[in-house]
C-alpha cells in the first residue's frame, strides 16, 4: 500500500451511544460493573453519572479501521490509553467521534492513529492500530 501518505484521513465516523448500548455491551463482554448502568452507584463513587465502559469505546473506535481494511489485511496490534471517561446521559446518550489517520507507513506494517472524542474532548489517548496487508 505504497500510496498511503502519513496524515491521510482514512476513515471518520460518529457513533451515537445510549444507555441501551451500555447494557448490551455489559452482556456481550461480561463486564457488569454497575457504574455503567446505575447513576446512584456512579454518584456514590464520585462520578458525575453513568459512564461508558472504556472497552466499549476502545471496541467501537477500531471499527472504522476494520471496515477500511476489509479483507485486505489484519490488525497486528491495538493500543489505547483511557484518558477521560465518556458520560452517557439517560436521555441524550453520547456521541463518540473517531477520526483515523495514517500515522506511519512502512513495508511491514501501517500504523493508524485514532483521534477519539466525545463532547469535544479527547477520550482515548495514544490510540494506535498497527495493521498489515496480506
Amino acid at each position: 500500500m505504497s500510496e498511503l501518505t502519513v496524515g491521510d484521513v482514512i476513515a471518520e465516523r460518529t457513533f451515537a451511544i445510549t444507555r441501551d448500548s451500555l447494557v448490551r455491551y455489559a452482556g456481550a463482554s461480561g463486564d457488569f460493573n454497575n457504574i455503567h448502568y446505575r447513576d446512584d452507584i456512579a454518584h456514590s463513587v464520585g462520578l458525575p453519572g453513568v459512564l461508558a465502559h472504556g472497552m466499549l469505546t476502545m471496541g467501537l473506535a477500531v471499527q472504522p479501521v476494520v471496515d477500511w481494511l476489509g479483507e485486505r489485511g489484519v490488525v497486528l496490534d491495538y493500543h489505547v490509553r483511557f484518558t477521560r471517561p465518556v458520560l452517557v446521559d439517560a436521555i441524550e446518550g453520547a456521541h463518540i467521534t473517531v477520526v483515523a489517520k495514517i500515522g506511519l507507513a512502512d513495508e511491514d506494517s501501517t500504523r493508524i492513529d485514532l483521534v477519539v472524542t466525545a463532547a469535544d474532548q479527547t477520550v482515548l489517548g495514544k490510540s494506535q492500530v498497527r495493521v498489515s496487508f496480506t
Binding site: V45, G54, M55, M58, V74, V75, L76, D77, Y78, H79, V80, R81, F82
Partner: peptide
C-alpha cells in the same frame, strides 16, 4: 475492585 480504573489496554495479535 471499587478503586480500580482501567488505565491502558493493548492487544498484540498473532492471528484473529
Amino acid at each position: 475492585f471499587s478503586r480500580v480504573v482501567h488505565g491502558e489496554q493493548r492487544f498484540s495479535y498473532t492471528r484473529p
